[in-house]
């Protein structure tokens, strides 16, 4: 396995999975709550990536415990939600750094493959 230069000090276990990355990407521009995340990811993938509740909440808890996202309770839409709070999630600075590093890694891999094609 090659060097993970663009990943900075990150160790492999800290890398988010594809699903977690999709969740983090959906939170880049603005904080969102659970079902809103599901809708955005579904729409962005043209319906190919459907996140169920059974996957979403554990993924959100994992991301939060690793410091990639943060949560904040909100009393929005309480009547419809039968008194239950909404929990809005937003990407932290650490989360943004991870996403940037992942993007940089993809870019490096792409450049490496292009260079390989030219040589061969």
């Amino acid at each position: 396995m090659g060097k993970l230069g663009p990943m900075g000090n990150l160790k492999p276990p800290s890398l988010p999975t594809v699903l977690e990355e999709a969740i983090m990407l959906s939170l880049l521009e603005r904080p969102r709550f659970g079902q809103n995340i599901v809708e955005v990811v579904s729409a962005a993938s043209n319906g190919t990536c459907q996140i169920s509740c059974g996957t979403l909440y554990p993924a959100l808890r994992r991301l939060e415990s690793r410091g990639f996202i943060r949560s904040e309770k909100s009393e929005a839409n309480l009547v419809v939600r039968r008194g239950h709070n909404r929990c809005y999630y937003a990407v932290t600075d650490q989360g943004r750094e991870v996403l940037n590093n992942l993007e940089a890694m993809r870019h490096q891999i792409k450049k490496y493959d292009e260079a390989l094609e030219v040589v061969t």
Binding site: G34, C53, N85, R86, C87
Partner: peptide, 25 residues
């Protein structure tokens, strides 16, 4: 709501039930 008190893990109970009722709405 009653079943959730026993079957749903407390840290996600509030938000997950809220989301459930919002989808239903």
């Amino acid at each position: 709501e009653n079943a959730a008190k026993f079957l749903v893990y407390e840290p996600i109970r509030d938000e997950s039930l809220g989301d459930l009722w919002e989808i239903d709405y």
